[in-house]
Amino acid sequence: MNGVELFLLGRTLTKIGEAAMPEPEGGTSRYGGSVRTVLIVASDLTTHPDSAVGEIATRTGLPQSAVSTAVARLKETGAVVTAPDPADRRRLLVRQAPHLSGRVAEVRASSIDDALTAALGEDADPERLKEIHAALEVLARHLTPHTPARARN
């Protein structure tokens, strides 16, 4: 596998992941770029709690306005909490909420089975699904947001 193939695999996996997530209540559209931004911010916060919006923007490469919008969305769903920075009361620090909100629990409990089956189409036999699940478990074990930074840089 080369870098291009890995990139394309990542895009395919992203699309399957988006298809697997449950629609938000009252949602009128499928997950788009804004949800990807929310997920990038949420992922960053797993390894960098108590971060200011500007710090998140610097680490993720996202525009500060997009990070601010994502933080507002995450706060609205109960996924994160904010508090004034004790060193600079003008800044807000963001961290994951201490308890899972209903929406976060719903998203984390969603299964990839239907989305993976749809992505495989005619090739979605039970053995192939089992093999792909196992491969994804291995990747998740080694390449999650908790993977040491040296592996992600």
Rank of each mutant, 00 (worst) to 15 (best):
R30P: 09
E127C: 01
H48P: 10
L92D: 11
G26M: 09
H99N: 10
A97M: 06
E106D: 14
R141Y: 04
G102N: 05
V53F: 01
L6W: 01
T58A: 15
R59M: 08
T28A: 14
H133K: 14
R152Y: 07
P148W: 01
R141Q: 13
T28K: 13
V4E: 12
R90M: 06
V35H: 07
E25C: 03
Q96P: 00
P98V: 03
G10C: 05
V41M: 06
R30M: 08
R150V: 14
T147V: 05
A72N: 11
R90H: 09
V71G: 01
A66D: 07
R11I: 02
H133W: 08
Y31Q: 15
I16G: 02
V41H: 02
E76H: 14
A149N: 11
G61K: 06
T47E: 14
S101N: 04
G33R: 10
R128K: 14
V38C: 09
L39V: 11
L93S: 08
G26S: 14
R11Q: 13
R30K: 13
E122F: 04
A124W: 02
A134K: 11
D114G: 12
S101L: 02
S43H: 09
H99Y: 03
G27M: 04
E127R: 10
S43A: 15
T14H: 02
I132L: 15
S68A: 15
E122S: 15
V35R: 13
T37E: 09
V35Q: 12
T69P: 00
K15I: 04
E106P: 00
T117P: 09
A79G: 08
V138P: 13
R95G: 07
L93A: 05
R89P: 15
M21R: 09
A66Y: 02
L100K: 11
V67T: 10
L136A: 09
E5F: 01
L62S: 05
V35I: 11
A140W: 05
A42N: 06
A20W: 06
G3I: 07
A124T: 06
E23K: 12
V53W: 00
E25K: 12
T37A: 09
D113G: 08
V80W: 01
L9T: 10
T77P: 08
T14I: 06
G32P: 01
A135W: 06
R91L: 14
Q96C: 04
L74E: 02
V104K: 04
T147G: 14
T60E: 02
T147N: 05
G32V: 04
D113R: 13
P22E: 04
R59N: 10
A134C: 02
H99V: 14
L136H: 07
P86H: 07
T144M: 04
A52M: 09
V38D: 07
L6V: 12
P63N: 13
V67N: 03
R30F: 00
L139H: 08
D113N: 11
G10A: 08
G32L: 06
A70E: 02
G26H: 08
T69Q: 15
P148I: 07
K15E: 14
V38S: 05
A66L: 08
E131W: 00
E122H: 11
S65Y: 00
D123A: 15
S43F: 04
G26N: 12
G102T: 11
A135Q: 10
E5P: 05
A119E: 08
L9V: 09
P126Q: 03
T28M: 10
V107F: 00
D114C: 06
M1R: 11
